[in-house]
Design a protein around this nucleic acid. Structure first.
Lengths: 223, 223
DNA sequence: CGGTTGTTTGAACTGATTCAATCTGTGTGG
DNA sequence: CCACACAGATTGAATCAGTTCAAACAACCG
């Protein structure tokens, strides 16, 4: 079920269309890649529950997560074989919809077209922001920024309180371009600075304003 | 004039459509930003000659170039005010086309739709690749990679020979997320390693295969 | 309970930044 | 044709952020 209540920025009308879409449900385990890079991807993938990552691997086996797909978001397979792989961050439920069927719907539902172009625009904005993050900010800012973004993307209305992080420190390292060891130290720093408080997977934000400042985070790019 | 001969990956039919597009020609100087971040951008921008950069600025004034637009490529303004700025790398000639007029053409020319979605796909691929570059590769690889990409995007057929670089070392630093000082050292290293040879703006590739290896460059993502 | 996955910590090392100075090339005006 | 200005390139020395390697620890699960 696609539902506006659990999926930020999804209108009821848009949810209805997604629920009408033909296709099959699949469950994706975080353990192994769902699709390897360059493997055939001939269906539109829509996340219903959980969280997917798109990643690239460098020649040397160093992994970089290049995008995330939260519930209500999806992946439209490129015309040429995709150079990225897909792997779940947590146990994930997806709707797989044949490209032709999807395009059929697309042609007749302006609302779906809108949704798609909005999402594309937003994902582009996020890519650019990540580029700034990895290119121009120090590791502390990168992690702080990522935490802010993750909280806002999961539940915008209560982002300032924190999030129950689905990510391992390795994941955060793969997004922010560092080693898991350093991510650990940075998280420790943020905690010592009184910006966050960790208990298990839960990360409470103790000072939302200051955390955003530490990450040079400005929510505008998420629209 | 949009022409397949000077614009890689542009079919004659696509060139015809672009040449039919209504709009005004403008000349953009590399000195100052064409559009500041968040400034109104209500026209489609199409590069006819030259080279544009899309950039973001961090709070601290550190600049990151997030995308480049070569001749035949363009910028479709996002629905919300763009969080990126636009600045020319060299003196550039653009066609500015009102969004409504452009959308009118778009609705009636499948070929233009194809062009647009191909380009969008390609630009996404490049963003992801840059993310890997900045996140996971050392500075030498980043510069080598960037040189390979730049040569291929300007003249695919003779990329292996090198390029007449329109970029200052500052530009390369802004793309690859480092300091211009270090870019200088890296270029020196590449030259000392016998991979490139510089005379002024001209960069000759002495060992195309090895340069690609040094940059973990695999052209597939450019399709 | 043993195995696996993830987190935490320490110590040594190194690549890249920073800051500052110098050098080179190009264009402009006298 | 020279003098000057300016943008960009080059080099050196000191510093530091982040990596690497290695090991211990904690939490979770069948």
């Amino acid at each position: 079920m696609f539902s506006p209540s659990t999926m930020p920025r999804l209108s009821p009308a848009q949810a209805d269309i997604l629920n009408d879409l033909p296709g099959r449900i699949a469950h994706v385990s975080p353990r192994r890649p769902f699709r390897e890079p360059l493997a055939l991807l001939d269906e539109v993938v829509l996340v219903r529950k959980g969280l997917l990552s798109l990643y690239r691997e460098d020649g040397v086996g160093r992994r970089q997560i290049v995008a995330l797909r939260y519930p209500g978001e999806g992946i439209v397979p490129p015309a040429s074989p995709p150079f990225f792989g897909v792997q779940a961050i947590v146990q994930t439920e997806v709707l797989l919809c044949a490209v032709e069927a999807f395009n059929g719907y697309l042609a007749h539902h302006a609302e779906l077209q809108n949704l798609l172009s909005q999402r594309a625009e937003r994902h582009t904005a996020i890519s650019y922001e990540w580029l700034v993050n990895n290119g121009r900010r120090d590791t502390t800012a990168r992690v702080a920024h990522f935490l802010c973004e993750a909280a806002l993307r999961t539940h915008p209305e209560s982002a300032s309180e924190g999030l129950t992080s689905p990510f391992t420190q390795q994941h955060i390292a793969d997004v922010t371009g560092q080693t898991p060891v350093n991510v650990n130290r940075v998280l420790g720093d943020l905690e010592r600075q009184g910006l966050i408080k960790r208990k298990g997977r839960r990360i409470d934000f103790l000072d939302w304003a200051e955390l955003q400042r530490a990450g040079s985070f400005q929510a505008a790019y998420l629209q």
